[in-house]
Design a protein around this nucleic acid. Structure first.
Lengths: 131, 131
DNA sequence: CAGAATCCGCGACGATACTG
DNA sequence: CAGTATCGTCGCGGATTCTG
């Protein structure tokens, strides 16, 4: 990197953007969500539970979330390796904030669909197939 | 699109992912944030206030946010065109949810930086500046 | 003043191996 | 079982130019 790590000055002080950077990416939320439901999960258990994720993305996302202090990784030195993941306290606190946002999203889904019906011709989502 | 619009089945029912899709993208939050502070702003006022945004991205983001019902657009039929933007009630409600997330982010900034200091060599942010 | 249209780079992500 | 490594794709967003 030619400058500092992104999180040291991401939006230079906007904690919201910082938070969204932490939970951004395609797979972090699914992981967090799964760990919130099942409390603690092994690697392949997560992989099976999250549809479509590859080893690479799962590993990478888990490492990042652990680095951020959102999830906890416990490795057991056994012959067939066993690694368990769970949410940290910060992860649990995150869930609370996310639920508020989810509540808003639930309401908005209706609104957006209706707005789209009214304004649809101007939407930036072009249709390129006739099927 | 070859299938339905993304928001009609984004995560097929996860309102959280839906919400994040609404406020995702690079400029939507800065726009929302600016409108929340100044209540109502004109186009070029927004453009000046949001550092680095181009006409294209501003126009596009404004249209999307309006389509989603998060912001309101008022056009005045005057000789020098005048357009004013402001948050809708849904936009205001969003701000509330975002503030909780921002609070979490504020706490996490400290945590992440400290974790990084300890775990830094394993971070996924490679240094390739001299290669 | 308030946009619209086009081209393009880059980084996130996917696919596909290989390993202790 | 729990990862790593490498390569290729794809689309968001940046830069630039044009218009009512």
């Amino acid at each position: 990197m030619d400058d500092q790590a992104w999180y040291k000055n991401s939006f230079d002080g906007c904690p919201l953007t910082f938070a969204l950077n932490l939970i951004g990416g395609k797979w972090r939320l699914p992981i967090i969500w799964a760990l919130n439901k099942n409390r603690t999960m092994r690697y392949n258990e997560l992989k099976r539970s999250i549809d479509g994720i590859t080893n690479m993305m799962l590993t990478q996302s888990l490492k990042e979330l652990e680095l951020y202090g959102i999830i906890r990784r416990e490795q057991f030195p056994e012959v067939p390796p066993r690694v368990e993941y769970s949410l940290t306290e910060h992860g649990e606190e995150l869930m609370a904030a996310l639920k508020a946002l989810a509540g808003w999203g639930k309401k908005m889904k209706t609104v957006v669909i209706q707005n789209n019906i009214e304004l649809e011709p101007a939407a930036g989502i072009p249709d390129s197939s006739d099927s």
